[in-house]
């Protein structure tokens, strides 16, 4: 998580210019909908409704690509939690997007084990080839957002990256164009 005197640089995804947070909100968990059925099924696994919060936020992100303030309120209403409480949880976890991100959200591991194997060069290559230019910014065509991420847990396969939900390991600078071709 990010907080306080930030030592983590600018790797938090920024809002896409021109995208408004106050567009009319269509509920994710309307009664009878597939996401609602999925959440109801998940809730049977836990003794409290609150425990469904992380799974519910994942469903929102899968459906909408990010978790808006409206969605936080909706999730709170469904689970009997306040919107403020839900926001407190959303902001704790780095994987929930609080702003829309590019169509392809690229996370590059740069923690020491990958760093000493050249991860910083991989980041540079992605920033350059996607046109993002800066960490956390979305490319002008709305396609890519690139961030640095802390340890992805595949240290022997340096450098691992994630493109949305796809996990790709052993990425070198040379492989970057080929990867971007797949996510065009």
């Amino acid at each position: 998580m990010s907080h306080g005197p930030s030592a983590s640089g600018g790797s938090v995804a920024q809002p896409i210019p021109g995208h408004h947070h106050d567009e009319p909100y269509v509920p994710v968990f309307a009664p009878g909908s597939a996401p609602r059925a999925k959440l109801d099924d998940i809730l049977t696994r836990y003794p409290t409704k609150q425990a469904g919060l992380l799974p519910a936020l994942w469903i929102v992100q899968d459906e909408r690509g990010w978790v808006s303030e409206h969605a936080m309120k909706e999730v709170g209403d469904v689970l009997g939690l306040t919107a403020a409480y839900v926001k407190g949880v959303v902001t704790f976890y780095t994987m929930y997007h609080q702003h829309p991100v590019g169509k392809y959200f690229i996370q590059v591991c740069t923690t020491s084990c990958c760093n000493c194997m050249g991860a910083e060069d991989v980041v540079k290559a992605f920033l350059e080839k996607t046109g993002c230019g800066e960490l956390g910014l979305t490319s002008a065509d709305g396609k890519y957002t690139v961030i640095e991420v802390e340890c992805l847990g595949a240290c022997g396969f340096a450098t691992p990256i994630m493109v949305n939900d796809d996990f790709i390991d052993s990425v070198s600078v040379e492989k970057v164009p080929e990867i971007l071709k797949k996510y065009a």
């Binding site: 425990a51 799974p55 976890y93 780095t94």
Partner: peptide, 29 residues
């Protein structure tokens, strides 16, 4: 014996056992 996967959401600290339990309960880790 029911076994379920609970997916985390990006927080190293949730590997600490009591943070992990809070995370399962739907709290900050």
């Amino acid at each position: 014996i029911n076994i379920w996967v609970h997916r985390g959401a990006g927080a190293y600290i949730c590997g600490e056992e009591t943070a992990l339990m809070n995370s399962i309960e739907g709290r900050r880790g």
